[in-house]
Design a protein around this nucleic acid. Structure first.
Length: 528
DNA sequence: AAGCATGGCAACCGCCGAATC
DNA sequence: CGATTCGGCGGTTGCCATGCT
């Protein structure tokens, strides 16, 4: 049962508005505004219309900032993406398209875009990604087809939130006690495959990587890749493997060889144009690295989307249990909240085989703890955060490495730098020595607070924290964007965690980042 | 030229949730 | 705290223009 009608239906005019009525309504609102009450407006304006009808006429037609006329390609693309992510939330979609009303967009979708989308889906249904544990490489026929259907397939990846599972040789995760140091059977991100995989699993892992051995790359595939790079076609194909575009500036190559030929189970790029650009540097990096087993996943960042997107991307890689991470290129200087953040050369700072996922900031501690305490679940992956020029010079062979990367430690590093910039240098040196001594003793925090920080860091790094059911390798990740960084990529990279390894993202929460547009709109209800 | 089909779009309807009484 | 009011939203309808036969 609906509520009572807002007006006397017998005495109100319905149907199309006459120019005279339009003029009356416009004149009244121009002079008095809507007054916050549409119900009483018609009588005041001398109109025999329902208040709701007046409101609709004003909002959808008479409002001065309405944009009439055909939709541009950019607007159309935006509608596709938003509709894929949030469905028919027309008012939200309209909020992203200045001058367009929800009614306009709804009509445009129903009369044109929906049909177009249906035709596309029929055309490239066969190009959907298989959700196998180890991703197979595309067949020659598929590669030939991909050249023709690439744009359609890309559209499909953008306009649907279908399950995309990428290969990752991660072992079923073991839940950890969040307040205790890692147990003996903990799988560290620093470990190499032979350290945590059984011999049979290891063979399976190498076998899976052999599927995409560089020897299978044909001249045709290389030619297609070059053509893709040269043209403005948004589809990115690297060595014959087509990237799946997840967002505007996030691409994943499944089961892909690294540019030098060493195996990489998956490749993430933060920009569609970045991978080819980074390839040269990556090749150089690989030349210095003869042990291809370490290259489980390569992360590339672009100049445009450096820093935030890059650091975000590291988290899910580790969360998925990546035993090591090879970062080929460095990120560029970038701005965070008006502060210049220096470029970080991960390779020089951390060596070729670096641990990412430490690029988190204290700001995310609270959301994490909220999640654990209030929801009683340990499934959280935060995204965003960053390191403001700090170095991580921890010894990865140190069995206590996880305790060396806690925020207090980083706070002290910051204190050290601050002290060095003041005039009383001797005194500072003394304080610095004290700090360093304190740091060595790891007595910088009360035990309880130290455990909190440990728990925080472990949750981000330890793969076990993301697993709800280790036997099935199913995972529920609560993905949140950071509250304080109004960066559109914040959160989206973390969503990738659901695509690396055998993860599923069941829910996306963003109440900590209401100012973000698209992550806020994301609501992935995904099961496998 | 007339009749019919289709597309586009303005407008309406009824439900929902927040605010108010 | 329940009832009422109101704004907002999404689904749907119906009119009009255009195209096709």
């Amino acid at each position: 049962m609906g509520r009572a009608p807002c007006c006397d239906k017998a005495n109100v005019k319905k149907g199309p508005w006459s120019p005279d009525e339009d003029a009356k309504l416009k004149a009244f609102i121009d002079q008095h505004g809507t007054g916050g009450n549409w119900i009483t407006l018609p009588s005041k304006a001398g109109l025999k219309r329902c208040g709701k009808s007046c409101r609709l006429r004003w909002i959808n037609y008479l409002r001065p900032d309405i944009k009439h006329g055909n939709f541009t390609e950019e607007e159309e693309s935006m509608i596709y993406k938003l509709h894929a992510n949030i469905g028919s939330r027309w008012s939200l979609i309209a909020g992203q398209l200045p001058g367009r009303t929800d009614n306009d967009i709804k009509n445009y979708w129903n009369t044109r875009l929906k049909k177009k989308l249906t035709e596309r889906n029929l055309d490239h249904h066969h190009l959907q990604m298989p959700a196998s544990k180890f991703q197979r490489s595309p067949s020659q026929q598929e590669i030939r087809l991909s050249s023709e259907n690439n744009s359609k397939a890309l559209d499909h990846a953008v306009t649907t939130s279908s399950s995309i599972s990428l290969a990752h040789p991660c072992k079923p995760h073991t839940p950890l006690n969040v307040t205790m140091p890692p147990p003996d059977n903990f799988i560290s991100p620093l470990m190499k495959p032979h350290q945590y995989l059984s011999s049979s699993s290891l063979a399976e892992f190498h076998s899976a990587q052999d599927i995409v051995s560089p020897t299978s790359i044909t001249p045709l595939m290389v030619q297609q890749q070059q053509q893709q790079v040269e043209t403005e076609d948004p589809v990115v194909v690297m060595d014959g493997v087509q990237a799946v575009e997840v967002t505007d500036h996030l691409l994943i190559w499944p089961s892909h060889p690294s540019p030098s030929g060493s195996s990489a189970s998956s490749v993430i790029s933060t920009d569609r144009n970045t991978y080819p650009h980074a390839a040269a540097g990556a090749a150089n990096s690989d030349n210095n690295n003869n042990n291809s087993n370490n290259a489980e996943c390569s992360v590339y960042s672009s100049e445009e989307h450096s820093g935030l997107a890059d650091s975000d991307a590291l988290l899910p890689v580790l969360a998925a249990g990546s035993p090591s991470l090879l970062i080929h290129n460095s990120i560029q200087p970038h701005q965070i909240g008006g502060d210049e953040v220096p470029a970080l050369d991960f390779s020089s700072k951390l060596g070729d085989h670096v641990v990412g996922g430490l690029l988190v900031d204290d700001m995310m501690r609270t959301p994490f703890e909220d999640s654990c305490q209030n929801q009683g679940e340990s499934a959280l992956l935060t995204s965003g955060g960053g390191v403001k020029g700090e170095e991580f010079n921890f010894d990865r062979e140190d069995p206590n490495w996880w305790s060396m990367i806690t925020p207090p430690h980083r706070h002290q590093q910051q204190q050290q730098r601050t002290l060095l910039t003041t005039s009383k240098q001797q005194q500072q040196q003394h304080q610095l020595q004290q700090l360093m001594q304190q740091q060595q003793n790891q007595q910088y925090l009360p035990a309880q607070q130290q455990q909190q920080y440990q728990r925080y860091e472990e949750s981000l790094i330890f793969p076990g924290q993301l697993s709800l059911d280790p036997s099935s390798m199913q995972c529920c990740s609560y993905v949140r964007a950071t509250p304080s960084w109004n960066h559109p990529s914040s959160g989206c990279n973390a969503l990738l965690s659901g695509m690396i390894g055998d993860y599923s993202i069941h829910h996306h929460q963003s109440r900590y980042a209401p100012q973000l547009s698209w992550p806020d709109a994301m609501n992935w209800q995904e099961t496998r």
